Simulated scan of single mutants.
Amino acid sequence: MIPAERYPECYLALVEKNTEYEGVFYVGVKTTGVFCRPTCPARKPKFENCEFYETAQQALLASFRPCQRCQPLSHPNQVSEVVRLLVEAVEQNPEKRWKGQDFKNLSVDESTARRQFKQRFGMTFVEYARARRMGIALKNIRSGQSVIDTQLTTGYESSSGFRDAFSRIMGAAPTLLEDSKVLKAAWIDTRLGPMMAIGDEQHLYLLEFVDRRGLEREVERLRKRTKSAIIPGTTASIQSIEQELELYFDGKLSDFKTPLFLLGSPFQQSVWAQLVQIPPGETRSYSDIAVALEKPTAFRAVAQANGANQLAIIIPCHRVINSNGELGGYGGGLSRKNWLLKHEKQASC
């Protein structure tokens, strides 16, 4: 059970439907006898009617039954039927340009599709379909098809409209992409909420929780530094980290083997190398890292390098805390940092 002193923190997360706490706690509502996720859309109970638990099993053992609205026993980020249906429809005809009648033919409300895709993927359905279509356009251009043929294949009558749409998604006009590379982005469901993974066939470039502040800027910076187009899809490296994350959250893996592509200064990379050496279940302070690098006064620079890490969990910046024992900061949220540290400590016992 969650300690009573943390009840106010958990209740605030419940009221705000804070996604950072997904998987961190469950709330039992004494007046209804049900237990819910932190993000449950139901009307919020009064504070005095709440009990907070670390696991669904604890709530069940306390005689609470699962809420029918948020379904706390199912996967926390289960794909809705609308999202599943539309993703399948895009894959059946990825070059299709969607119109209002297409949604009606599938008995899907267009505004519902927009909202659910925005919530899950950070983009509307139309943006998702356009990105998929543009990914095919890039593949065609790189295989030798002319820009005008590609334009017509993807349904754009106007060359300027095609070029503008292409540039918004890919980061460069189609005629400038001959020497650029393609990275793919996928969403990975985890116990603590969905994560975004970006990689090519050989390496993983980024792994972050999708609700991390500034994630859009991170992705844009990655795209510019690698001179890459980033499109929806999966790769061998993304499939590898998805499998490893599942084992990690099950407490069966602590040493990740997925090859990484590190984008950072020599100093940043030296800090990240130290982070990987921190054993699971243990922590170090920023000062400890600075001393290990033989730069004892550089603890602030260490903290900045720690924050610049774009490979959450794999490069374990969550294992670095303040010298006074406080958790310090974490891009994915302190609730997740605390959960990760407790999880690794239990798994290493």
Rank of each mutant, 00 (worst) to 15 (best):
M1K: 11
P3Q: 10
Y7A: 09
P8S: 05
E9K: 14
A13S: 12
V15Q: 15
G23R: 02
V27R: 03
G33F: 08
F35L: 04
F35D: 04
C36R: 10
C40Q: 08
P45I: 02
K46H: 06
C50S: 04
Y53Q: 11
A56N: 08
A62F: 11
F64E: 06
Q68N: 10
H75P: 09
V79G: 01
N93Q: 04
R97Q: 09
W98R: 01
D102Q: 03
S107H: 11
T112S: 15
Q116I: 10
G122S: 01
V126Y: 11
Y128T: 03
A131I: 00
I148G: 02
Q151Y: 04
T153A: 14
S159H: 13
G161T: 07
R163F: 09
R163D: 07
I169T: 15
I169A: 08
L176D: 15
E178Q: 13
E178I: 05
S180I: 11
K181P: 05
D189V: 04
R191T: 15
R191A: 06
L192K: 13
E201C: 03
L206E: 00
G214P: 13
L215M: 04
L215D: 02
V219K: 10
R225M: 10
K227C: 04
I230C: 05
I231D: 09
A236M: 00
I238V: 04
S240G: 01
I241C: 00
Y248H: 04
G251A: 10
D255K: 13
K257R: 14
L260F: 06
F267T: 05
Q268A: 11
Q269H: 06
W272H: 07
L275I: 08
P279K: 14
T283H: 11
Y286L: 07
S287Q: 15
V291L: 13
E294A: 13
P296D: 12
R300A: 04
A303N: 01
A305R: 00
N306Q: 08
L311G: 07
I314E: 01
I315L: 14
C317Q: 07
V320S: 04
V320C: 11
G331L: 06
G332F: 02
G333W: 12
G333T: 13
G333K: 14
G333E: 12
L340A: 07
H343F: 06
A347K: 07
C349A: 14
